[in-house]
Every structure is written in structure tokens, then in C-alpha cells.
Computed example of a mutant assay.
Amino acid sequence: MSLTLPARDWFRAPEGAEKLWIGLALLWCFVLSLMMPYWHFKGKQNSRGEAYAVAPMDFLERTERFVTANQVGEHNGFPLVEPAPGGEAYLFARMWSWYPVLKLREGETYRLHLSSGDLQHGFSLQPLNMNFQVLPGYDHVLTITPTSKGTFTIICNEFCGIGHEHMIGHILVE
């Protein structure tokens, strides 16, 4: 067995086209770094909602009070709940369900409270491209205004165990 040492001139300074490509790469990194604040504030890609620390059982208790006060029926075995326009709506994530099913009105604004009782879950509202991380111990508040009627599906996009593929919820907009 023999080891060979690299030649003494193994490193060469960039020259010609290499300098151009390195310069373009650095310039692109600089442009993308400047665009991050723009995307955050003007791109409407990140939530500007509020977040509060909350015990999971306290949030579940608030959700149960919300369901009791606003239930208007059932949908696929879950309570169908219609909050007052401009009011508060609660969604509780737990293995492997979103609780309850919300019924909202088109054009009305709601404060949607999201939390988890057990694990990190992903709130992905389809067919819209809305994604949000739902963490236990936090009450995430999103201000939403439905702009079209229909049934919107909530999918958990964070793996949460064996029944993850069944974690589907609904928001009905009329």
C-alpha cells in the first residue's frame, strides 16, 4: 500500500471563466439575501399571526366550549361548527384528526386558533397553497377571510405516526 501526496501546486487560484462563475454565484447569493425581507413582508408567504403559550388541555377545553356554543350539525362524524362572522374559531389537532369541522361564510373575517394536543402537525389547506406548523403548547392565531365557496380539505403534512394518512379535516365555506 502506498500513499501519494498531492502535488505541490494542487491549488490554483481561479482564473478566466472560473472567476466569472464565482462572481455570478456570489452576486446571486447577495440578491437572494436581499429578497428574503421582501418575500417575508410583501410576498404574503409567511404567517403574521400571533402565537401564545397554552397548555394543551386548556386549549382543548376552550375548543370544547367553542364547539358546545356554536355546533350546527355533524359532518363525517365530527361536530360541524359555525362561528359568528368576525369571531373566533378553534381547530385542535391530535393523532389523527382535526377537531371540529368549521363552517365559515365567504367574505367574512375570522380569527382561527390552531393548536396540537400531542405532536407537531402540519396544517395544509387544500386546494390553496397554505401551510402552517401546529405545535403543542402554542395557540397560533391566523386571521383568515374565505374568498370562495366550497369544501376545503385540511391535510397534516408532518408525519405524526401510524395513522398519519387518515389525518384529514374540512372547512366548509358558504
Results as ranks from 00 to 15, higher is better:
G122A: 06
G107F: 09
P37G: 08
E158I: 15
M36W: 09
I144V: 15
S33A: 15
E174V: 03
L128Y: 06
G137E: 03
M35S: 12
V31E: 07
Q45G: 14
L142M: 13
K149Y: 00
R111P: 12
N129W: 06
E74G: 03
H170N: 12
F41W: 14
L80D: 02
L135C: 06
K103G: 04
D9Y: 01
I171G: 01
L60P: 00
L34I: 08
T4F: 04
S2Q: 10
P6Q: 08
I171S: 01
E61C: 03
E18Q: 14
P100E: 01
E106G: 04
S124F: 12
Y38T: 13
N70C: 02
T151Q: 14
E82D: 03
M95P: 14
Y99R: 13
G137R: 09
S47W: 02
I154K: 06
M130R: 13
A55D: 13
T147P: 08
F78A: 12
F30Y: 11
L3A: 04
T68F: 06
Q133N: 13
G73V: 03
L135V: 11
R65V: 00
L91P: 07
P6S: 05
L172D: 03
R62P: 01
G150T: 04
S97W: 07
L60W: 02
Y110D: 12
S148G: 14
P79G: 02
L60A: 13
G150V: 04
L102K: 06
P136R: 07
I162N: 12
K44L: 12
F59D: 00
P56C: 10
L60T: 06
P6G: 03
L125W: 01
H40I: 13
S115Q: 12
L60K: 13
N70L: 00
Y138Q: 15
F11A: 05
A7K: 06
G117L: 11
L34E: 09
L3V: 06
G163T: 09
H113I: 07
V31Y: 08
V173C: 11
W98M: 11
M167I: 01
P136I: 09
E74T: 09
G117P: 09
E88P: 07
V101P: 01
G87E: 01
T151M: 12
N131D: 10
P100T: 05
S97K: 14
R48A: 07
A51G: 10
P6H: 07
Q71K: 15
W96P: 05
M167L: 08
S124Q: 07
C160K: 05
G16R: 10
K149F: 00
R65S: 01
F92N: 02
L125E: 02
P83R: 00
L135K: 12
F132I: 08
D118S: 14
T151V: 15
L104T: 08
L80C: 02
R62G: 04
H166N: 10
D58E: 09
C29H: 10
